[in-house]
Write a protein that binds this DNA or RNA. Structure first.
Lengths: 139, 139, 139, 139
DNA sequence: GTGGTCTAGACCACG
DNA sequence: GTGGTCTAGACCACC
């Protein structure tokens, strides 16, 4: 199936960030699996009505995170999962993402219980399917 | 009481953002209630050793968000909060932010337990009085 | 002292890569230490007679490697060393860099002994000063 | 004997580069000597299951580098090697490549021992007959 | 056709 | 002044 990428031009978050996030969602949810091809830079750019460079920038960031890889002349593909970051770095990034999320939740005036509930619900849904399984902590 | 504002000059998050966040947290935690005065721009700037413009910009953003209001010649005060968004809209936004956070966490290969733990830890630190208690109010 | 950046426009290696390498050299050799400012994007671009975007791209890559950091409105600075990558990833990168180096050496028709000797000489020179000291292997 | 060429389609390095490298290594290791014939473009393409264009491009690069030569209607042969660069120039280039490699290794926080070990391991794998033995020849 | 690099120039956010 | 994002469009390498 075609990835249902959507972009909000009016949003505060940069276009390239939105693309990065959506690819991450697709991979995290297992909608895209290792080996699967991503839409070509030009194709996606046309589809989202943004400049190809913007898509390229997004893809480049995902490559550096080890989530996807490029094969010259062929396109981008979801990469085999491999431990790229140290545990400290992973924690730093988790913390950062959590901070961003919580700021938004607080601004939206949600009480802790409701936030926790929302998380639990979503965790349960992706539950046994997606998520981490491997022994992980690479030295 | 004086708000215990603290600024980290070396931090990655902009100074003005740090101020905005701290006011938000103070209000969310109930340390600042509707009608309470905020320190003047000059006072806070002196206290934090930052440029007054920076404080002014932070306050401007908070005004724009409806969290505080300025009363000519008297200073800034915490505004009576009225929900700007409908409950459905708020839920949609929470969902979206949560989705982004969770995808990042999953891609970083963190197991559900660790994600939950990180959230709980941060929620607790937000203060036991933390978050909004009022029932949902639909716009 | 001003960093003696130089660029070879005719070279096969991309401009932005050359910049990345030179910053790495400076940091590895201890000519640039944590906290030190780097030339601003526009300044360096002017100095090297390249487009600012090219410098920006180089700096962005160094940021993602955790070698430097940007402070909004102030510039780029050498970051405190922190373990960003997992051991596997570090080994992968070492292997890659070694492969590139050896290919060049082989093309240049140097025998193993001479290659080894050159390495030893250079290792000895940065010896006790530069190089790795910390316990490193972060989990 | 047939050259034991192997290609990794999933690899990050381009197909044609892999071919170029393998020919170089074969020559460097003395498995192919001046005057020896190389497999024809079509033969090798069939053997590696790649497009003949890819092989042709690899051979073209090797010709350009003076490592092999084509004899009209007969095929490609390993060329008599003559040093293109003066010894000082070769040393300068070796120095430069080494510098880039070492900076990367140091920044990756590898201790001298480990760097040396990695080099030795790779040199050994290059083949015991590996590398050039001839004395330096100044151009 | 694919991705990779580079330029020129615009507009915004931050201090 | 600083960096950050985005566009438009060029040219090259690879398959």
């Amino acid at each position: 199936m075609a990835l249902g990428f959507r972009i909000a031009t009016g949003s505060l978050t940069p276009l390239y960030r939105q693309i990065v996030d959506q690819v991450r969602h697709a991979v995290a949810a297992g909608r895209q699996r290792p080996g699967d091809p991503l839409p070509s830079v030009r194709t996606l750019a046309g589809q989202l009505v943004v400049n190809p460079n913007t898509v390229a920038k997004a893809y480049a960031e995902l490559v550096r995170d080890g989530l996807i890889e490029s094969r010259q002349g062929r396109g981008y593909f979801v990469a085999d999962r491999r431990p790229v970051f140290s545990r400290t770095e992973r924690l730093r990034r988790l913390e950062e993402a959590l901070q961003t999320f919580l700021s938004e939740a607080v601004v939206l005036d949600f009480p802790p219980d409701e936030i926790r509930a929302a998380l639990d619900k979503k965790l349960a849904r992706l539950g046994p399917a997606g998520g981490a399984k491997r022994g992980s902590s690479d030295g």
